[in-house]
């Protein structure tokens, strides 16, 4: 290999790479703690919501969706308890401190509806497999999107971190997902 060939090979290497999703939140938190930036009220509006492509979903996501759906149903009560756990409580505390009591109540209602819908889905055993699979994909999508928002409220929350790490690990295994490094369809 000549110098020229080596230069050409090096020139073809990618110039960009996405770091883990947690890095942004870690960095923002560190900057807030230093007083260099101020927590954005209504930061959810500041950035577009997570977008997920349901049309080009790789097969493993369906499998993961089913697993997640089962796990969510089985852990439905635990979710309620988890909401009372320390880290998540801290996150909600932030919301209350901002005076958005109604917003917190809305989150709680939506969460209850989410779990109830999954329970109903699970109870409707014998439905068309394709329909169930699609519903579970949506459930997984909601879980991913919710985890992304929770981590912005509580970047150090270990439960959320594990959920996102699980998604990231799966995403890296999939070429469909990995090329763009992010999901695509408006949720």
């Amino acid at each position: 290999m000549t110098d020229h060939e080596l230069e050409q090979a090096l020139d073809r290497l990618p110039r960009e790479r996405e770091p883990g999703r947690m890095l942004e939140e870690r960095t923002v938190r560190a900057l807030r703690e230093e007083g260099l930036i101020v927590s954005a009220a209504g930061s959810a509006e500041a950035r577009p919501a997570a977008r997920i492509d349901l049309r080009h979903r790789p097969w493993w996501r369906s499998a993961a969706a089913i697993a997640a759906g089962i796990a969510l149903f089985a852990g439905g009560l635990s979710v309620g308890q988890m909401l009372g756990a320390r880290q998540t409580a801290d996150a909600f505390q932030t919301v209350f401190e901002d005076g958005d009591v109604l917003l917190a109540a809305q989150v709680q209602r939506a969460g209850s509806d989410y779990v109830a819908a999954l329970a109903a889905l699970s109870a409707a055993d014998g439905g068309a497999a394709a329909d169930t699979s699609q519903a579970l994909e949506v459930a997984l999508t909601a879980l991913w999107a919710a985890a992304n928002e929770i981590v912005r409220l509580a970047p150090d929350d270990p439960v959320t971190a594990r959920i996102l790490q699980g998604f990231e690990a799966k995403a890296q295994e999939s070429a469909d997902y990995g090329a763009a490094g992010q999901l695509l369809v408006e949720f």
Binding site: E24, V28, V38, R47
Partner: peptide, 15 residues
Amino acid sequence: GDESAFRELYHRHTP
């Protein structure tokens, strides 16, 4: 201390 401005810069230059 605009957080959304920081996030925009972060997304532009971090990769």
